[in-house]
Design a protein around this nucleic acid. Structure first.
Lengths: 349, 349
DNA sequence: ATTAGCACTCTCTTTACGAGAGTGCTAAGA
DNA sequence: TCTTAGCACTCTCGTAAAGAGAGTGCTAAT
């Protein structure tokens, strides 16, 4: 209306919308006849055909073969999501359902993440994916060192949000528990409240500044501190409802399924995709090839970051076939992300 | 020879063995002709046919339809595993490969479990499953309580083997960190070195014994201690290499796959199955329907417990189609279980 | 006891064919 | 000029028929 599209008329938009709607719920190529019938345009099938031919030329639709109906392309979905889709809201029932499922998970960040992935999975009937708190961004609440063996130390890191990370390291010299306690006390004083990114900087600065390192305790402390924060994975990924993807008719073929599940096992690929969504303040939709991940070309992602104290902490997402009901996914993911942010805020001390 | 089978002749055994061998690597019904050819019996196809008919009557073989070859039944596999199979050993290359893959995981129990499931998966080309340390059996090394919010406490439990468990609980009264430290000190003295099973008993005994509970500190300590050990899952389950199962031709059908992956998501079902294997000191093979799990009728499990300090701690297993190379799986699982036990022993302080 | 021979059965693949759905194009109508 | 009715064409899909292939069970001969 106000902003006239350069090359896409209002009618073309209406037909594209209709085709996508039909295709999303039938999973079968959509013909001109059914569009003309089901959506009460005052247009006959022949006109629809002309318009569809135009849309195909524009790259929004494709034909699996001559004389089949049309199927949306990635580009078609993209246009739909950006310009055609009318946002819906979740029904109050759905919202209530989500909230109820979350209530038992109150207070445990990891449990919350896991539950979120499962809720998203079951409501979207796709895979629900959650990118957990970014390690770098966790704030140190407490460090703890436990001596497991003379040369082996368990490092435990508790963040203010209640996330616990731990790992075992081997040290060169024997460190009795006594000394570990002193080290922990020192580091806790030094690092309390800092994010791990800051911790890394502080430790490096200290180590440079006190080159000499006469103090053995100090030296050990800095050394152990570095071990704690180094080489950690970017973040944890939680996946729920993966079986729903198998229900989609487009993946009846076993080979495609394998490719997809291989990606699920290799979580780094999911991390890479979801990481892109963290920079955007709001909700992101990535469609098919836009994922730039060989093996996932036929999937789309709807993702949204969630926040703690104003900073994006992680992301929730739905991963399903490109033929997914985008409006619904957008509202579902958006609602869930806001809810998670709210729960996290309610928990921060 | 020495022990003449009541109803199974030596020749029948040989034919059954041959059929199972062929079927395991072809996945197709085995006919009399190919048995006669491939295995240089001095018997023609017709004789083989007679023997196969006998084996069918005995319940060891079945025909998908008249005039197809024979296929082993669950009972046939069972007989094969119990009486026919000749044990193999892994090749030194395979053993070396396993050991190398484990070396980076040294010292971290959780990492070791995860890695084990993946190694088993990739070497068996089936799903690798590990039932982690049984919670009940962990020995308390250290308890730690961190106050996250006035009414919310993070409980951390470190076991002597380096396993870390944690959870967040909500408490009725405000507990400052100061007091939590005192509580932790008390409980650490009381519980150090006990298994969680014993911890439970000790706490119950104390609570009964000191009914009055005049001491607030004591009351709180016992209360928090109970929260720490109660309601915990039986054990963690690690699964690796699930995608291999999809490669099996018998699961090309999407519906069967779904059933199987549903079981993977619902880990309690796997726990139930593997738990059965913990009681047996050695290796267990469970075939098809013997699993007694609707949805997994076409799978078999080869499992073996691993030990720490003489007590079974958890189990490693391979989960694949009933048509799996049992000899190889048995040696693989056996070797891996022994290796895991060894690595655990090497780590105990 | 073994096996050759044979008729029979069942699956799988190929081929043919018609129904159905959809298209593109052309020409007529608004 | 835009719309649409009509029509020939194309492609898929399901069904049916036919033949090849593999395997069996039975009988009779060795």
């Amino acid at each position: 209306m106000a902003h006239a599209q350069v090359s896409v008329t209002e009618r073309q938009r209406a037909v594209l919308r209709a085709v996508i709607h039909d295709y999303i719920h039938s999973a079968e190529p959509v013909g001109s006849r059914s569009v003309s019938r089901r959506h009460a345009f005052h247009l006959g099938p022949a006109s629809i055909r002309n318009i569809m031919a135009d849309l195909e030329e524009l790259g929004y639709l494709a034909q699996p073969h001559t004389s089949a109906g049309r199927v949306p392309t990635d580009m078609g979905y993209r246009f739909y999501v950006d310009a055609l889709m009318d946002p819906t809201r979740l029904t109050p029932e759905e919202e209530g359902l989500i909230e109820r499922r979350f209530s038992p998970a109150r207070g445990q960040v990891e449990g919350l993440m896991r539950e979120t992935s499962q809720v998203l999975g079951s409501l979207s009937r796709c895979a629900g994916v959650v990118l957990g708190p970014r390690f770098e961004q966790l704030q140190v609440k407490r460090l703890e060192f436990v001596s497991l063996a003379p040369d082996r130390v368990l490092l435990i890191l508790v963040s203010t949000s209640g996330v616990v990370h731990h790992k075992v390291v081997t040290v060169d010299e024997v460190l009795p528990q006594e000394e570990l306690n002193r080290v922990a006390r020192y580091l806790n004083d030094l690092l309390h409240g800092l994010t791990l990114r800051e911790v890394r900087q502080v430790l490096l600065a200290r180590m440079a500044e006190e080159k000499a390192l006469y103090d053995r305790l100090l030296r050990r402390a800095l050394h152990l501190g570095r071990k704690t924060v180094e080489g950690e994975p970017f973040a944890e990924v939680y996946i729920g409802g993966t079986t729903h993807i198998m229900e989609q008719p487009e993946f009846a073929d076993g080979e495609k399924m394998r490719a997809i599940f291989a990606a699920f096992e290799e979580k780094s690929r999911l991390v890479k995709i979801l990481d892109r969504c963290l920079d955007d303040a709001g909700l992101t939709v990535i469609i098919g090839r836009e994922l730039e991940d060989v093996g996932l070309e036929e999937l789309s992602v709807v993702a949204s970051p969630f926040f703690q104290g104003g900073a994006p902490l992680g992301a929730v997402a739905v991963l399903g076939p490109t033929r997914m009901p985008y409006e619904k996914m957008v509202s579902l993911v958006g609602y869930t992300a806001r809810l998670v942010s709210r729960l996290l805020a309610g928990e921060a001390s």
